[in-house]
């Protein structure tokens, strides 16, 4: 499990998404989120995107008003993690066609679903953007067909 968790924080420190790949008590989660918010927001734009936190590392990247934060184990390649974050952003950008923070807020369940297609149990399952989007498309179609059926029946 190389990625421990992925957080999306707004510039104001609001949680937009939190995905945990290990089972930890919710008190710890809340504490971690709080501390990371302080840590990440206090860093300046020119500073590097890697920081040590407790006994692991935090890799984050800012896109517009959103911070994408990954908690990773120590032996993880930091540059690769940055690439993973970037790839994830690219995917949701493609999916929503020019994504903005509101998209993420109002479609939070979709973001989780996309994330599930991209990362599974803390590791990248599919490195191809197109493949991830294709799978999402497939799911959506099935969902719609399902709905249609229910109306017709």
């Amino acid at each position: 499990m190389s990625i421990k968790f992925l957080l999306l924080l707004s510039k104001q420190g609001k949680v937009r998404l939190s995905k945990w790949y290990e089972t930890i008590p919710s008190a710890t989660k809340t504490k971690t989120i709080k501390e990371l918010t302080a840590l990440v927001l206090s860093r300046r734009t020119k500073m590097c995107n890697i920081s040590e936190y407790k006994d692991y590392k935090v890799v984050y990247r800012r896109y517009a008003s959103l911070f994408f934060i990954c908690g990773v184990e120590n032996d993880v390649n930091e540059l690769e993690t940055l690439e993973i974050i970037h790839r994830f952003v690219e995917i949701i950008d493609k999916w929503f066609k020019n994504v903005c923070e509101l998209d993420i807020i109002f479609n939070f369940e979709k973001i989780y679903q996309i994330l599930d297609e991209f990362i599974i149990s803390g590791v990248v399952q599919e490195s191809s953007k197109r493949e991830v989007l294709r799978r999402m498309e497939m799911m959506e179609q099935y969902e719609n067909v399902d709905q249609l059926e229910s109306v017709i029946v």
Binding site: P25, E109, Y112, Q113, M139, Y142, E143, D146, Q147
Partner: peptide
């Protein structure tokens, strides 16, 4: 229904510990 199932699975990740 798949839509409901999907949401169910999603919530299960958040709530089942």
């Amino acid at each position: 229904k798949f839509q409901q199932k999907r949401i169910g699975y999603l919530s299960s990740l958040q709530s089942f510990r």
